[in-house]
Design a protein around this nucleic acid. Structure first.
Lengths: 211, 211
DNA sequence: CGTACAAAAGTGGTCTGACCACTTTTGTGA
DNA sequence: TCACAAAAGTGGTCAGACCACTTTTGTACG
C-alpha cells in the first residue's frame, strides 16, 4: 500500500498503534489474523510476516486455534536468539569459558557491594550444604550468584553460555573444595570483594583440576 | 515434517545451520526464497515468515529483485522497534548498560594483564587523538579495548548490547574528558588495573553527565 | 433446570499459484 | 566491441484452499 518502507515494517508499526489505541494490555488477545488483514487492508500473509517477527522478538505469543496475545514478559527472549546466532559463529570454547566467568565475577562484585544481596538467606543454606558436604553442582551456586546480582540480562546470557559448556554432573564436595567454597561464601556475605573473587578463582581451579 | 515446535522457528534454526555449513559470511547472498522453500521442503510463505523475522532482527538484509543477504552487524531498526514497543521497561535498559560495562571493565583487566595487549600501537594513536582533541566516539575507544582483550564472543555480545544503547554521536573531547581519558590509556599501557578501571569509570561518568 | 457432549464457528498453520516490481543476466544487433 | 532490449531470476503481495486445534454454541438427556 504505502511507499518508501517495507510493508511488513509498516504493519508492525500499525500493530503498535493499534495496541496503543485499543489499550491492549499484556496477556490480552489481539484481533485475529483475518480481521487484521481486512482492517489494515493487506493480505493475511503480510500480517502473518509481521506477527511472526514480533513473535520471534517475544513481543507476542500465539496459540494454535486460540489466538494471538500480547506477551507478558517482553524482550529478553531476543537475547537467546541473538546469542545462539553469535555462539554459532564464534564457537571458541575458551571464549565461552572466559565470558561466562566474567559474568560470574561481576555478579560476585555486585553482591558484595549490595547490603541486601549479601544478606540473602540463600548464602546460609548454601554454606550449610557445603558444610554437610552434600551433593552439589558448581552451577547451582553460581546460578544463585547471578540471580542475586539482579541482572536478568546477564542471567540470560549466562544460561546460554552454560548450555555450551561441558556437561554438568553432581558430585560430592571434597575437603579442599569445601574450604575454598566456605571462604568464598563467607567473603561474599561480608562484602569482601577481593577475597571473594580470589576464593572463587581458587575454587573453580580446584574443580577444573578434578575433571 | 515438523516436530512439536513452531515451523518458522524450525526454519530459523535450519537457516542458521545452513549459514554455518555453507560458510556464508556477512554480506554474502543467501539462496533465494524459492530455492530455500524447495530445499527445506516447506512452502515459500513459511520461509518468508522466518526470513522476515530475521530481517526485523537485522540479521539479514533483503533487496527487492536482488536477493537476500547476510547482514553485517548493524541493527538500527531493532532499537526503534523495541524502544517503542517496550514501554518503560527501565530495568531492562539498566541491565543492558550494566552488562555492557561489565564487558568493558573485564576487557580492561585482561589488557592490563597482558604484556602484548598493553603494548599495542593502537593505544598510542588513541592517546594522540585525545591529545589533539579530535572528534571521538566513546564506542571507538571501547571497541578497541574489547578487540584487544581478544575474546571474540565478548566482542559479539558487546556489539549487540551497543545496538541497544543510546544513539552514538561524534563529539569533540572536552578538557575534563581528555584528562580522564589520558589517565585511562596510560594506566592501561602500564598495566595498572585499579587505576585503569577507576579512570574508565570516571570517564564514562563525565560522558554520562554531558548527555 | 442443569449438565454433558457433539456440532459449529473461530483461529492459527501451511501450501499453492498467481501476479507485480525490481534487479541481474543474457543475447542480439548495430 | 559495445549498447540496449529481452529474458530470467528474485523479492513483495495477495487470494484461496485445506488442515489442526481451540472456543463457543446448541441441543438432547438426566
Amino acid at each position: 500500500m504505502n511507499e518508501n518502507k517495507k510493508m511488513f515494517m509498516q504493519i508492525v508499526k500499525q500493530l503498535r498503534e493499534l495496541i496503543y489505541e485499543q489499550q491492549i494490555e499484556p496477556g490480552d488477545k489481539l484481533p485475529s489474523e483475518r480481521v487484521l488483514s481486512e482492517q489494515l487492508g493487506v493480505g493475511r500473509s503480510s500480517v502473518r510476516e509481521a506477527l511472526r517477527s514480533l513473535e520471534l522478538l517475544g513481543l507476542i505469543e500465539t496459540r494454535h486455534g486460540g489466538g494471538t496475545f500480547l506477551a507478558s514478559i517482553h524482550h529478553h527472549q531476543l537475547i537467546e536468539i541473538l546469542s545462539s546466532f553469535i555462539l554459532q559463529e564464534t564457537k571458541s570454547i575458551e571464549d565461552v569459558h572466559a565470558t561466562r566467568e566474567m559474568h560470574e565475577r561481576e555478579a560476585i562484585r555486585i553482591i558484595c557491594r549490595s547490603e541486601t544481596s549479601r544478606s540473602l538467606p540463600v548464602w546460609e543454606s548454601l554454606f550449610i550444604k557445603v558444610e554437610l558436604q552434600q551433593e552439589l553442582v558448581r552451577e547451582d551456586i553460581l546460578r544463585e550468584c547471578i540471580i542475586a546480582s539482579n541482572n536478568r540480562l546477564s542471567l540470560k546470557i549466562w544460561l546460554q553460555l552454560l548450555a555450551y559448556s561441558t556437561q554438568t554432573f553432581k558430585r560430592f564436595v571434597t575437603e579442599q573444595e569445601k574450604k575454598a567454597l566456605q571462604m568464598f561464601i563467607k567473603s561474599l556475605q561480608m562484602g569482601y570483594i577481593k577475597e571473594a573473587i580470589e576464593a572463587y578463582e581458587e575454587w573453580i581451579e580446584i574443580i577444573q583440576d578434578e575433571l
